[in-house]
Design a protein around this nucleic acid. Sequence first.
DNA 1: TGAATGTTGACAAAAATAGTAGGGTATAAT
DNA 2: ATTATACCCTACTATTTTTGTCAACATTCA
Lengths: 144, 144
Amino acid sequence: MKLSTRGRYGLKAMYQLAIHYGEGPIPLKNIADAQNLSENYLEQLFSSLRKNGLLNSVRGAQGGYMLARSPRDITVGSILRTLEGNLAPADCVIDGEYDCENEENCVTKLVWMRIRDSIDEVVDSITLQDMLDEYEYMKRKNKI
Amino acid sequence: MKLSTRGRYGLKAMYQLAIHYGEGPIPLKNIADAQNLSENYLEQLFSSLRKNGLLNSVRGAQGGYMLARSPRDITVGSILRTLEGNLAPADCVIDGEYDCENEENCVTKLVWMRIRDSIDEVVDSITLQDMLDEYEYMKRKNKI
DNA sequence: TGAATGTTGACAAAAATAGTAGGGTATAAT
DNA sequence: ATTATACCCTACTATTTTTGTCAACATTCA
């Protein structure tokens, strides 16, 4: 039930981009260095995020990546699903993914559905802006 | 974020035992056959569950496994954690498991904590008895 | 032009998962 | 006592997933 590094690195990277939202394109290298990640690996993650419409890219010198829209309009759920696939704990509760015979009478399926729904509710309710706000709040609390 | 077969098979098997709770020991073979699983593999899962106090076993002819206590007192969470380990989405939110520097200022950690808590709340609130009840409910609903 | 950057697809090492295999031990029925 | 039944334990292995690496290419800016 762990997230893979794709989701974990990816969310951190997107958060970094949120910090610099509005400052124009940020080179991949900056993000990779800040988090001590392989540039090549992060590139794969960003490629997925771009294809899913969460990032924009600018090629060439002074190019880089930036959020495709406001941090307020990007949820943690959209990021994690892009990188990890559906967050359901079992394939049988992903719509159209898989059909088990005996579906009618499967009680464990109800359990997986409830887990799935609770995860979805959490991740879809948190935006990058919320994370920025939480950081400000933590900073103030720790300083005092 | 998928559960492995350990958790999925294991919960189904425990549910089977819950159905037959009070009928004395049920042979592993019965459960394995009913779910079309390898006897040897299921044995590994049952071994973990027994060591964690969720199952009792009776050796010898007419022996088998049975729930260590009432279905009402066995949660889905205790089963899944036994078989899958902690259900947290990242190691940094498992108590005493892992320390990242920068913990103070890590905002993504807050996200992982909220996911963890919501999963825990769901799985710890469902017992095997709840599953039995849900099945009865489904059966009535589908028949009418 | 040349240096900085993103784009793409193929490849590969490492780790985790999902079992298999088989011998050993305890118990109960006969 | 013997035998069948069934749990117990350890080691092994094939497969899949994860976690990257690498190389060649395209685009832009100075």
